[in-house]
Design a protein around this nucleic acid. Structure first.
Length: 796
RNA sequence: GGGAGAGUGGCGGAAUCGGUAGACGCGAUGGUCUCAAACACCAUUGGAGCAAUCCGUGUGGGUUCAAGUCCCAUCUCUCCUACCA
């Protein structure tokens, strides 16, 4: 069959007739299946996209046949650095590049025959979309969840841009791979930490692979402990620390604060060795996070002369050090060091000759860090207590003395939200000399991104928009005086944090989506995506949705009911595909050579959907042969019912059941194997009935819709897309007879074909008289275990 | 350092509750068709052995009538995370 021709034919038919359009008013039950919308890169669609979309493509086509009103949308997450960098390199405006790329992507998606609702396509860079991204930002601002702060942030020296914590994992820029440094800047933060507990609670409820859940749970990083205030001897102030081990307080022999800690500036005048301290501070902040981690074995630091802390329990005076092994971003940026029971504190103490006092018994050598089950020593108030009780008792004591309290700490940090870049949503904020920070009134949205020619960032990391006077200069909405606009833009993750809401009502110009439509469509029933977005996009978007829910703007607290996973497609060499390795597979080459149906079938057949798998050029042939066989069967079809062997009936019914169950469990590969078994069984028959052939076509349709549609039209005038999905007959699932395995001492010695449902005694009698078995039981046997219809084991 | 996942033929990978290990596909070998090749079709295909049979799911133990599957120990790989106090 000429796949080029028939695929084009049915794609035109489906898309021109809007066959996959989701209905807003429908009596059918709804189903919202969502795949992570692509970033429209210049390279076009990648083989990974095909795999990522094929899973829910199968589900969506199956749901339509099952009578659901399906929303399976697609759009483009088109703001972002790669486009901007490419624009700088080629001196072409990002708008032009984006439009071009979206066009290419759309064409390619259609060439694969994906059943997206192309009437709902959204583009995050369009004014009528980013207007609402800005709207949600203002909502956050007005709720006190967007704030500006002057602080140290992750900064990529190559992209000349601030990065969020999520974008600089491992101390490396997410986009370009450069080492990230700490830079002091004006930063917009979104207070995602306010939602840490809600996000954690929601994670437990999410239907998802444990990998997804644990990763989110670890990222949120809840830990229970206490805040403890250590009085400063020289001034009337406290040094506050966070600890999970309040029990070890008698073992504290020194304090350590992060180089960025504010008391350094606050009590500058008291510090006798200020020059030395400032020098260390300077060095530390200019080290990249990578360097800090690399040098971790070798602890560095400076003792702060002139400031002393007082242990609130023992009253002992202890020195304070500055060291870069303490991070400003976690806890309070200060720790109480217990060198006897913490290997980092121990290393530091050894180097700086600090005292080391063990407070938990059991260890012969220091540092003794295996301290979950020890007993307290050298700790007057809690001596002899088990660690667990000691923590509890000490926290109570601290609270009683009003020098601290029980608290919960989260690893997650607030989300650094501004970027010094052109190709993003302008942050809708105005600075007025009189009124300070003024949010743009909702009615003035969108703050349009001006069309400019010079979009290169400058050397000191200022946004290209700062050079555009017509954009910067404005009037204060409050007092009418001359004012300036914020010139930074939002990060790539902004637009994608709410796109699933927009899909329910993509052309609305009054609201980001109507409540009525969101009530109908939400939550997303099945959201499929990659592991790489679990600690970024998935958390961000859940945060926005939870916030909007609390504002009464969306109807559900958690936007996703189920989160599915897809594994990476690796190169044939087992390495990640990349241009530099030259192991990239272009999906369109496969489409041209074998057709979209073969590609779709193969990409799901290749392995477990959730696992990473190397690409294999040779195995595709098997899928092509399979489709040839399906087509060839067309000649064996006879109208009307045929009476088959029970065996074939069983195969048909088992296939229907198995394929359906496998698909629901994301076991797309074994579902294909079952279809192959069915086709092989059909091929052995002289003739098959039209009804049974159509059963095959319906089962095949979600995978290979072009072929299914083409063959279906040999018998019908209507489309197969909304034909009812096959159901199976319970009583035809099992054969009348069964093959039982006979083993002696666990080794297979014989097989018997017997009637189903024989009693144990009947089976025993048959087995003991088998010629193949007799030699093994000449000297009698100890016992016989019969597993009904399956296996007999004789213990001799 | 912490967490998660994985280890099965020449290859990609299957294997509900512990019950015939290797489904399905690729490749390979032999054959049919062809002047020939490709395609297609038929047969065989975990290893050793003529065979009976023996050995086989990273490694070493254990539980069980029975272990890829459960338990203990151990090695290797992948991903995530990371001076997290």
């Amino acid at each position: 069959m000429d796949h080029q021709k028939i695929e084009k034919k049915w794609q035109d038919y489906w898309y021109n007739n809007h066959l996959f359009r989701a209905e807003d008013n429908s009596a059918k039950p709804k189903y919202y299946s969502l795949v992570e919308f692509p970033y429209p890169s210049g390279a076009g669609m990648h083989i990974g996209h095909v795999r990522a979309y094929s899973g829910l493509e199968v589900i969506s086509r199956k749901r339509r046949m099952e009578g659901y009103n399906v929303l399976f949308p697609i759009g483009f997450d088109a703001f972002g650095l790669p486009t901007e960098n490419y624009a700088i390199k080629t001196k072409t405006h990002p708008r032009i590049i984006t439009d071009r790329n979206i066009e290419t992507f759309t064409k390619q998606l259609k060439m694969c025959g994906f059943s997206f609702d192309f009437d709902r396509v959204i583009d995050t860079t369009e004014e009528n979309y980013y207007k609402w991204t800005q709207y949600i930002f203002l909502k956050l601002y007005n709720a006190g969840l967007a704030y500006r702060s002057h602080t140290y942030v992750n900064f990529c020296p190559s992209c000349k841009c601030v990065l969020s914590n999520e974008e600089s994992q491992g101390g490396v820029c997410d986009r370009c791979g450069s080492n990230v440094i700490q830079k002091e800047k004006d930063v917009w933060f979104l207070k995602i930490t306010e939602y840490a507990q809600d996000l954690l609670d929601g994670t437990y409820k999410l239907e998802a692979n444990p990998r997804v859940k644990t990763e989110q749970i670890n990222w949120i990083g809840r830990s229970e402990g206490a805040h403890i205030n250590f009085k400063l001897k020289e001034v009337n102030d406290n040094l506050r620390v966070f600890t999970t081990r309040a029990d070890t307080i008698y073992g504290v022999t020194f304090m350590v604060i992060a180089p960025e800690h504010p008391i350094l500036e606050k009590y500058e005048s008291l510090i006798k060795n200020l020059d030395e301290v400032n020098k260390y501070k300077e060095e530390a902040t200019h080290k990249s996070e990578f360097e800090r981690v690399e040098l971790q074995k070798d602890k560095t630091g400076v003792k702060i002369e002139g400031l002393t802390a007082v242990n609130p329990i023992s009253g002992k005076e202890i020195p304070i050090y500055i060291s870069d092994y303490v991070m400003m971003g976690y806890g309070t940026g200060a720790i109480m060091a217990v060198p006897a029971h913490d290997s980092r504190d121990y290393a530091f103490a050894k180097k700086f000759n600090c005292d080391i006092i063990p407070v938990i018994s059991g260890g012969n050598t220091l540092p003794y860090t295996d301290i979950e089950n020890g007993t307290m020593i050298n700790s007057p108030l809690i001596d002899g207590l088990q660690v667990k009780d000691a923590i509890k008792t000490m926290i109570e004591k601290i609270a009683e003395l009003k020098v601290g309290e029980k608290t919960v700490n989260y690893k997650m940090k607030d989300w650094a939200y501004n970027r010094q870049r052109y190709w993003g949503e302008p942050i809708p904020i105005i600075y007025c000399d009189k009124c300070g920070i003024v949010p743009v009134p909702y009615k003035d949205l969108p703050v349009k991104l001006p069309y400019i020619e010079d979009f290169e960032p400058n050397e000191n990391g200022e946004s290209p928009l700062s050079k555009v006077d017509s954009f910067v200069n404005c009037t204060c909405p409050k007092c009418g005086a001359k004012a300036r606009r914020e010139t930074d833009t939002m990060p790539q993750w902004g637009g994608s944090s709410w796109y699933f809401l927009r899909f329910t009502d993509p052309r609305n110009d009054k609201e980001f989506a109507s409540m009525e439509k969101m009530k109908y469509w939400l939550p997303v029933d099945w959201y499929s995506g990659g592991m790489e977005h679990v600690t970024r996009h998935l958390i961000y978007s859940r945060f926005w949705n939870e916030f909007l829910y609390d504002q009464g703007e969306v109807p559900v607290k958690e936007p996703y009911k189920k989160r599915g996973l897809h594994g990476l497609i690796l190169g044939t060499d087992g390495q990640k595909m990349s241009k530099s390795k030259g192991n990239v597979v272009d999906p369109l080459d496969i489409v041209n050579q074998y057709g979209a149906d073969v590609l779709r079938l193969f990409i799901l057949f290749i392995s477990d959907f959730e696992m990473a798998t190397p690409w294999n050029n040779d195995s595709i042939k098997g899928c092509a042969r399979f489709l040839d066989k399906v087509e060839a069967l067309n000649g064996n079809v006879r109208l009307g019912d045929l009476e088959y062997s029970k065996k074939l009936k069983v195969i048909i019914n088992k296939t229907i059941k198995g394929v359906s169950e496998d698909i629901e469990n994301s076991k797309f590969n074994t579902a294909v194997a079952k279809l192959m078994i069915l086709v092989n069984a059909y091929t052995e028959e002289e003739t098959i009935s039209q009804k049974d052939y159509e059963t095959l076509l319906k089962l095949l349709n979600p995978y290979c819709p072009h072929m299914a549609e083409e063959l279906w039209h040999n018998y019908h005038d209507n489309t197969i897309q909304y034909e009812s999905y096959p159901t199976y007959n319970e009583k035809d699932l099992i054969e009348d007879t069964c093959l039982m395995v006979v083993s002696v001492n666990g080794k297979v010695r014989d097989k018997i074909e017997v009637e189903r449902g024989l009693s144990d005694d009947e089976v025993k009698e048959i087995v003991l008289n088998r010629d193949r078995i007799k030699p093994y039981i000449e000297n009698g046997y100890k016992k016989i275990i019969v597993v009904k219809d399956k296996i007999v084991n004789i213990v001799a």
